[in-house]
Each structure stands twice: as structure tokens, then as C-alpha cells.
């Protein structure tokens, strides 16, 4: 039986090489294009009708817009809204990657189940926070490493704060990646239980109902996690942006 990790394998579709550099168009590339296309299509269709009483599609598109706008406003203040396009794009990309990865039958490739993808997104957020912080506050930005405590404590606290700051892209990317990886592996493993037991015959075939019920529950949970992880990714981006925009203030 195939390994549960096989679903995460990257296979080239159109092999391309520049020197020793492998830039093949892979199934990962394909699904990233599908994700971006689906998100763009969804929002364009949602925005195109412009009815006063929205259709379902328009309603969902508007709700996601308002949700992210509210999130930025509450986490990073009014000024954070300048970064709305960025945060919204990030949220939509992650959400659609997670959701399309759960699509049945077509054997989708979940792009967010690869740490390099989530780390790429996270390091982009991380670098942007640094650039925005330095651009707005200059070297004063470095005061986020110095909590308001007696000077003696700073000797130990500043290194701790720096390590804590550097750990952000890691925790941001590992959380999303691990959730996706674990969820899809779990679904696969339960799936093989169902098939294995059902084909075993006799009493075992009846027992196969149990992993089937489990897989239904897990699948429902995965949909929740798909949304929640996209939400968490976006809100943490807002919280980090708040540090860059407002330094010690909290909104």
C-alpha cells in the first residue's frame, strides 16, 4: 500500500532546467496557480453583481472583506488598513490552499503542507515588519527589544526578546505547515483503515464502519482547521504589523 506521505510528493509536470537549476513546473506550481486563480475568480464573481441585497457569493466575499478589515483595525489600528491588500491576499491564498487541498476525487496538492511555502510567506511578513518598522521609526524601532524594566534586567531581557522576535517566522510557518501535514496524513491513514477492514471480509467488514465515522469527523474538523489556520496566520500578521507601526502601543 502506498505511503501516507506520497500525497505530499512533488512531481515535475513540465521539466525545465537552467544550468544546474531545476525550475520545473511541478504539481505544486500547478496548484499554486489554481489556488490564486480560484481566489481571484471567487472575489471577482462576488464583487461583480454589486447588488444591494447580496447573493450568496457576494455575501461571502463581502463577509471575508469585512472580517479582515475588522481584524486589522482591532489588531493594528486604523493605520494598519494601509496593509489591507497585503493581509487580505495572504489570508485568501492560505485559505484557498487549505480548502482546495481538502477537495475530494481530484487528488489535490495542498501547497501549504510544504514548509518551504509557509516559511516563504512567513519570512516575507517578517522582513516586511522590519522594513516598515525601520522606515517609520528609524533606529527607534529597535526599542521593541527593550521592555520597560530596570536597566539591570535589560542585559538578559534584550537577548531574550531578540530570540523571541527571530522565532516568529518559524512559529508562524511551522504552525500552518504542521496542521496541514498532520491533517492530511490522518485522513489518509483513516482512509486506508476503512478500505483495509472493508475488504478483509467477515466481521471485520462491519468494523470498518468505525474508522469511516472517524474519518467523517476528522474531515469536518479539517475544514474548521483550514479556516482557523488561515485566520490565525492573518491575525498574527496584523499583530506583528502593529509592533512595526505602533511600537509598544497595544490596540
Amino acid at each position: 500500500m502506498a505511503s501516507p506521505m506520497e500525497q505530499f510528493e512533488i512531481r515535475p509536470i513540465v521539466p525545465l532546467h537552467i544550468g544546474n537549476l531545476d525550475i520545473s513546473f511541478t504539481n505544486a506550481s500547478l496548484w499554486m496557480c489554481i489556488v490564486a486563480g480560484a481566489a481571484a475568480l471567487f472575489l471577482t464573481m462576488g464583487a461583480s453583481s454589486r447588488r444591494l441585497v447580496p447573493t450568496r457569493m457576494q455575501s461571502i466575499a463581502e463577509m471575508s472583506y469585512v472580517m479582515i478589515a475588522d481584524m486589522i483595525r482591532s489588531a493594528a489600528g486604523i493605520e494598519g488598513l494601509k496593509f489591507f491588500p497585503f493581509v487580505f491576499t495572504l489570508f485568501m491564498f492560505v485559505l484557498f490552499s487549505n480548502l482546495l487541498g481538502l477537495f475530494p476525487l481530484v487528488h489535490p496538492f495542498t501547497v501549504t503542507s510544504h514548509i518551504i511555502v509557509t516559511f516563504g510567506l512567513a519570512i516575507f511578513v517578517f522582513l516586511m515588519v522590519i522594513v516598515v518598522g525601520l522606515a517609520r521609526h528609524g533606529l527607534h524601532f529597535l526599542s521593541i527589544f527593550a521592555p520597560k524594566v530596570p536597566a539591570v534586567m535589560l542585559v538578559i531581557l534584550i537577548p531574550i526578546e531578540i530570540v523571541s522576535f527571530l522565532s516568529r517566522p518559524i512559529s508562524l510557518s511551522v504552525r500552518l505547515f504542521a496542521n496541514m501535514l498532520a491533517g492530511h496524513t490522518m485522513l489518509y491513514v483513516f482512509g486506508t483503515f476503512v478500505i483495509g477492514l472493508a475488504t478483509a471480509g467477515g466481521v471485520l467488514s462491519l468494523v470498518s464502519v468505525m474508522p469511516l465515522l472517524a474519518i467523517i469527523a476528522v474531515a469536518a474538523l479539517e475544514f474548521l482547521i483550514a479556516f482557523l489556520q488561515a485566520y490565525v496566520f492573518a491575525i498574527l500578521t496584523c499583530i506583528y504589523l502593529n509592533d512595526a507601526l505602533n511600537l509598544h502601543e497595544h490596540h
Binding site: M71, S164, R175
Partner: peptide
């Protein structure tokens, strides 16, 4: 209201926060 994160999600979030810092510190 914001979606209330599940208990599992909250626990997972705390674990990654802890682990990431340890990994980064050890790595440096």
C-alpha cells in the same frame, strides 16, 4: 465575534511558540 479557537488549536499555538524559540535559540 472572532471565531473562538478550539482548545486543540490554542494548545498547538502555544506549543509552536515555545518550540520555535527553542529551535531558533539553539540554532543560533
Amino acid at each position: 465575534e472572532a471565531p473562538s479557537p478550539s482548545k486543540l488549536g490554542a494548545a498547538f499555538r502555544l506549543v509552536t511558540e515555545l518550540l520555535a524559540a527553542v529551535i531558533v535559540g539553539g540554532g543560533i
